[in-house]
Design a protein around this nucleic acid. Structure first.
Lengths: 193, 193
DNA sequence: GTCTATAGGTGGATAGAC
DNA sequence: GTCTATCCACCTATAGAC
């Protein structure tokens, strides 16, 4: 892996701070201290904090989309895809972070417009991908769920986000593991003998 | 209803602001403007913001406990109790608010210690109550679920919190309704003919 | 209890030298 | 690109008069 560019180094720090303390929970000064630059230099790369947040969301959403694409490209069974989807959340929590967009969702009303739109777009993309996988699972006879596919997808995303948030408050990642495991188990169709 | 005391008037405003913008998303100045007092007067009643937050949590948790007690006292069937439990969340969302503790959960790392403990205590109490109702439902043959009761309770609480958070981002309370309805449906045991 | 006034700090952001 | 220096708005909190 090559040395990251300065903007990426800044975004890396900003991302971690946003995922742990919220977008309103860190300042340019916090980033500056970690990347060893002055606040003024940060403003050269990201003129305003709204700008920083917008580009943070763009990068995060793109990375997530790439991860989902990778799952599609290397996984066959729908149930396994959901396993790997849940594993994405787990790996974030393992770093003591919240999902960036789960975090931003709670700060929603205080965010600049472009960020609000970015948060919604992230969830729309997530739910669409999960819905696609749920339908694959139906076709494979491997999954089952109650109600329309889009609603089942929305439910899974919301449940994972909620479980993540509570697990972090309890300081207990196992709480997330347990919830995720059962959520996926309940989606698995009983194997026909 | 009698005119609320000054501390309660202050807490009413602080509560709404915390539920919509987060605990770090409002200031004494914001409250002062709404209750038509100066910031200094607010500090007379609540010396520090940590103090304000602690008493906010105490009042909120007590009110929630009272609501749960009322459900117990006036509702027979476990499934109906869960309906009324979900209705508590719905009524909060109807006011364009998040659950106070769902909000604080995302700000968890930035909260003073007493508030962190209060948030966890709220969720512990919620899950304990839901677990009790789930067991009642088992005994009545009215509910069914996967895995240990405490985990099922934790899952329901987390799912409702998550659904609430996403519904608010989408600006669509119906998303919460749909999720809550199906979550409860899935808990209902099929009626024996 | 509520006020005016203010302290001391931090927020995001800009000007201009190098 | 990065820096020093600075602005102004806002933050929590306190002193002291009424």
């Amino acid at each position: 892996m090559a040395t990251p560019t300065t903007p990426d180094r800044i975004l890396n720090v900003a991302e971690r701070l946003a995922q742990t303390q919220g977008f309103n929970g860190f300042s340019y000064a916090d980033i500056a201290k970690e990347v060893r630059m002055t606040k003024a230099s940060l403003h050269y790369h990201f003129p305003s904090k709204a700008d920083l947040g917008r580009r943070l969301l763009e990068r995060y959403t793109a990375a997530f989309a790439a991860a989902l694409h990778d799952i599609d490209a290397t996984t066959e069974r729908a149930a396994d895809k959901l396993e790997r989807y849940a594993a994405l959340y787990r790996s974030v929590l393992a770093k003591n972070r919240m999902c960036l967009c789960g975090m931003l969702a709670s700060e929603f009303t205080t965010l600049p417009k472009a960020m609000r739109e970015g948060v919604v777009a992230f969830f729309v993309a997530n739910e669409a991908w999960v819905a696609k996988v749920l339908d694959e699972g139906l076709a494979q006879g491997a999954l089952r769920f109650t109600g329309p596919t889009p609603e089942a997808a929305a439910r899974l995303v919301a449940s994972l986000e909620g479980a993540m948030m509570l697990a972090r408050s309890f300081g207990d990642p196992v709480r997330f593991e347990a919830a995720a495991r059962t959520l996926l188990t309940e989606l698995a169709a009983p194997t026909t003998q």
